[in-house]
Amino acid sequence: MGELTPGDQAQRAVLIEAFAAGPMQGNGAAVVELSQAARSEWMQALAGSLQQSETAFLWRNSDGQWCLRWFTPTCEVPLCGHATLASTLALQRWGLMKPGQELVLASRSGGLRVCVDPSTAGAASLTLPSEPLVAEPCPSYLAAILNAEAQGYWTSTLGYRVVLIGEDQSLETLAGVSERLQGPDRQGLVVMQALPADRPQRLLGQPCDYKLRFFAPGLGIDEDPVTGSAHALVAPWWAQQLGKTTLHGWQPSRRSGGMRCEVLQGLQVQLSGTGHVLWEGQIEAGAPGHDPGGWDVCRVSAA
């Protein structure tokens, strides 16, 4: 480890595998604690070095409220579920949040309510905004990529596209999807499927209701292992189809995982899951600088 030069600052950091059933599973997110709003260029460069699906940055504003931003290796994103879960568990690990305590983290997507589960170690919940799905004709090229005809195709203001395939198709064996996506589908394509009753997948002691995979090469993520924002987007649709408000979604990626989804009023979805710490230490990557306008991108009001 090199010595810090004048003006450098070491940033506390932890990598948490979120929405994971156990170690070496789920979706890794680095969480970095800042003393103040940092320059976007510095955060983006660090996220590129850490090479996680998302790196989350936390700091307190002048009112004492925690602020949160997320960066993939190539760009900033407006919403990220797994890195929000990881941030919640990081705050608890650092003694900045108590089990059972509820906080509102300010973000570009508004205030996000989070809570550490007081009864289950390494578990937390977060509430994300959802968006209506708008049905559209499915692009013809997708059938060849998915080896199946789509049973439905939707767009959303979140920027994600959603496609439904039949239960007789193999979601798990899909390969080479990202490199063949075209146009807006590259910004985030959710491929989802009902979970057949004769092949149950259990999560948190309950059978799962649906499964999905998520591809976003346009965001610098060929495939995201477990995607909270994607589950928050599609959970209301599954709730309507299945006639229930609480569901369990599974993501059969190479690093599989899942979450409990409770559909709330006002297009809100509470996601619950567990996380596991992979490493903890400090980042010595030069002075992050201060962005006096960095707070302007966030909204303080609770969603």
Rank of each mutant, 00 (worst) to 15 (best):
V32I: 14
A194G: 06
S107N: 07
R60W: 03
E136G: 01
A230E: 12
P6D: 08
Q151W: 03
C261W: 04
R108L: 05
A175Q: 13
Q101I: 06
C67Q: 14
L204E: 14
R202T: 15
S107V: 11
A230Q: 05
A135R: 14
V116R: 01
L142R: 10
G220W: 14
S130Q: 04
C298Y: 05
A45R: 15
R213T: 05
A37D: 12
G188N: 04
A144R: 13
G289T: 07
L68N: 09
V226L: 04
P129D: 04
A106D: 14
G294P: 10
A197N: 11
G110E: 02
D8I: 04
P139N: 07
G281H: 10
S253V: 11
T127H: 00
D222C: 10
G275N: 03
Q92T: 08
A30E: 00
K98Q: 15
C75N: 09
V77D: 13
R260P: 11
V277M: 11
L264S: 06
A144Y: 02
T274V: 13
Q206P: 06
M192W: 03
A13E: 03
Q240H: 12
A83S: 15
G64K: 11
R39P: 12
M259Y: 03
L112N: 03
L174H: 04
P23R: 12
E33W: 12
L68G: 07
Q206D: 00
L89Q: 05
S109Y: 11
E223D: 10
R161H: 15
S178Y: 03
V14N: 09
Q92C: 07
T157Y: 04
A123W: 06
A38T: 04
H290M: 06
N27F: 00
A216Q: 06
E179R: 00
A302C: 09
L46K: 01
Q151I: 01
G294I: 01
V114M: 07
G122E: 12
G205A: 06
Q51S: 09
Q251I: 12
A90E: 00
A135Q: 14
W70L: 03
A197Y: 09
S53M: 05
R213W: 09
P78Q: 13
S301H: 13
T173H: 09
M192Y: 00
G159M: 08
Y141L: 03
A37L: 04
V234C: 04
M259T: 03
A83Q: 03
V191C: 01
D117Y: 02
A83R: 05
E54A: 01
A150R: 07
C80G: 05
G28L: 06
T55K: 09
G273R: 00
Q187N: 14
G166M: 05
E131D: 10
F214G: 06
E76G: 10
A56K: 02
G275W: 00
E17C: 00
